[in-house]
Design a binder for these strands. Structure first.
Lengths: 371, 371
DNA sequence: ATGAAAGCGCTAACAG
DNA sequence: CTGTTAGCGCTTTCAT
């Protein structure tokens, strides 16, 4: 199968077909093809195919002032949640002829770096931006970018900026689900391992969690895990620090802001001789791949990541075409996945312990992938 | 909708600075800035900063016939291996001012789709292509693309095409490591769950695995898992099929071509009452995140994915600047990670069973990420 | 050291 | 319907 790179230009095709370059352009434009006589168009398409003509998108972008490219900002390629999200975005956008300019923006990068990346993207004339890496400190930049006319959609993480559409998970609800689950099991002394709170996802998880606890008689031991990276190591370190603090562990349950922190905490607890779930319950967040197969299977909060990506993609297109009538906020509902890492506390506190294990169990639905 | 602020052009800066646009261009070009008198350059930079001037990369690309963009083809965003790889590629390329145009190309897509994506990328004037999604059937296309002059580097997966650089893992060695490990434990009847063999990674794993077995007295039960998707479900299905076939399971060990297949197989085995590793050993491949925390921890093959991405990035730059003197093949060495899912067979066959559990154990080194 | 001129390849606007 | 004209914004000769 011979295939050559676009070396023929519209002018070449025009010459070979005996027409003008603009007629070539029109013949290939789906919106203008019927401005061309069918016979002429046929001939142009025929010649174009023979020469292997592909319009030069760079020239087209320059002239049309649009690139059919959507910029996407993520905080890390290594986090499977972003893979899932990009899958959704890509699945929605590629069939429509849009392509993705993706940049990784680590959470410890400063705002300067952040605005540099955005400027680089807009200098490439992206038609819209999906930002899934926003931190509190980026509010001003994002607001001014949005006000300058670039269609922006916040995805996953939001910031305080009215006028910017956001597609997020209801993380406050997620935090509340975790809290209610632990309370319903009878836990009254709970430890929380948080992520960086200038990021909405973590701030909201904490808010929802605290809201529910405040209305109960349960006690919260608050433990900041990391202003840096919510990883297995970090969860391990945070938990070990508590365990080695001298005071015996009063908590009978742990809520970690993501699955990795939870796994790390579980490691530390297991090494310290605690049995999960008999002596300590652990709840994670995100429902990462394989969390259902851990030892024990991790109770966690599942998010609609793929759908979030798809909705963000649809929304950025909507903002591009008519920003006025775009629903500014879509908050997706998370789901509690109960597995084996949570159970009643060692010494159940009083009365009715609702063990909703059986009723709320949700069938596994892991993504499929290969190497 | 607020209008996009009129961005300053080089002409605007030139007018405000009292110079010609070409002087603006030269003042900002790192390679030509010393062709401009220092005083003039200062003034230009000053004005450019005041006006917030950013060169329009689209125009620049059109004129210079290069885009500072590298195309990357992956088979699925959902596979964490690609996240890791993109992290490496991005980490290497972004600091040098290159950006990534990434496209997802599912393994079940036809060659037509494949060449469409490549043409779309080259119509955007990508400066080079890193292909990590190649299947056997794409050989012709990739060869002709490479021969047409676009710098191409194969990453992760290779095809039969001399003249195209490749950065891959030594998957044959990986397969051999798995085989030697199982043989050293004393297994003599082994089942293999393969991935699609028109993809080099899986074909090589099988080749290396078979090579070692052929020199032993062990028997292989060959089981094709999927021409489609090597997922948990697929491993589950494949294993269940064997277990339900009527004949009792003769194998005492399973080698799955990736971790997901292994986890699925393990599920099916556990449900059928087999204890791992006492009654059945399982080896996976890839060392996905959290596999070390599974129940039991999964013995698997770890790859240098991040490094592979970095090397691929460096290599594509090398091909772009001087394709003649590029080392055409880099094969990275995989590593056996022994965990709890493998042990001696139920009825050890004869003599010296080398249990290398303790000696070859490797410290966990999971990537850190957050949501 | 700087300016003038000439496009890169495409498409919108305007004729006819 | 189709051709002509005129750039998009930048970089590169080629002069000076």
């Amino acid at each position: 199968m011979m295939m050559r790179l676009p070396v023929a230009t519209a002018a070449d095709v025009a010459r070979a077909a005996g027409v003008h370059a603009s007629t070539v352009s029109r013949s290939l434009d789906p919106l203008k093809r019927n401005q061309v006589k069918a016979a002429t168009r046929e001939r142009v398409l025929q010649v174009a195919a023979e020469l292997g003509y592909r319009p030069n998108m760079t020239a087209s972008s320059l002239r049309r002032r649009r690139s059919n490219t959507i910029g996407v900002l993520i905080s890390s390629f290594s986090n499977p949640i972003y893979g899932e999200m990009l899958h959704g975005i890509s699945g929605e956008l590629e069939p429509l002829g849009y392509h993705l300019l993706i940049a990784e923006l680590p959470d410890d990068a400063d705002e300067h770096r952040f605005s540099n990346v955005i400027e680089m993207m807009s200098s490439r004339r992206i038609d819209g931006l999906i930002c899934a890496a926003a931190r509190g400190r980026d509010t001003e930049i994002l607001r001014s970018v949005s006000e300058s006319g670039l269609p922006v959609v916040l995805c996953l993480r939001w910031i305080e900026a009215t006028g910017i559409a956001r597609i997020v998970n209801d993380d406050a609800l997620g935090g509340a689900l975790a809290a209610r689950h632990l309370l319903s099991l009878g836990h009254t002394s709970i430890l929380e391992i948080t992520g960086p709170t200038d990021i909405s996802t973590f701030a909201e998880r904490a808010r929802g969690f605290h809201g529910v606890l405040a209305e109960s008689s349960a006690t919260l031991v608050h433990q900041i895990a990391s202003s840096s990276s919510p990883s297995v190591e970090e969860g391990n370190r945070a938990m070990a620090e508590v365990l080695n603090s001298g005071t015996p562990l009063s908590a009978t349950a742990v809520f970690a802001h993501n699955d990795l922190l939870a796994v790390g905490a579980l490691d530390a607890l297991t090494r310290a001789g605690f049995d999960c779930p008999d002596q300590i319950s652990v709840v994670g967040y995100n429902d990462n791949p394989l969390t259902g197969h851990l030892n024990p299977g991790l109770t966690t909060i599942r998010l609609q990541i793929d759908r979030m990506g798809r909705e963000a993609a649809r929304t950025v297109l909507a903002v591009m075409s008519d920003s006025a009538r775009v629903e500014p906020v879509l908050s997706l509902v998370p789901e509690l996945i109960i597995r084996a890492s949570t159970g009643p506390p060692r010494s159940p506190t009083v009365a009715e312990v609702e063990t909703d294990h059986s009723s709320a169990w949700v069938e596994e639905n892991l993504p499929s992938y290969r190497a």
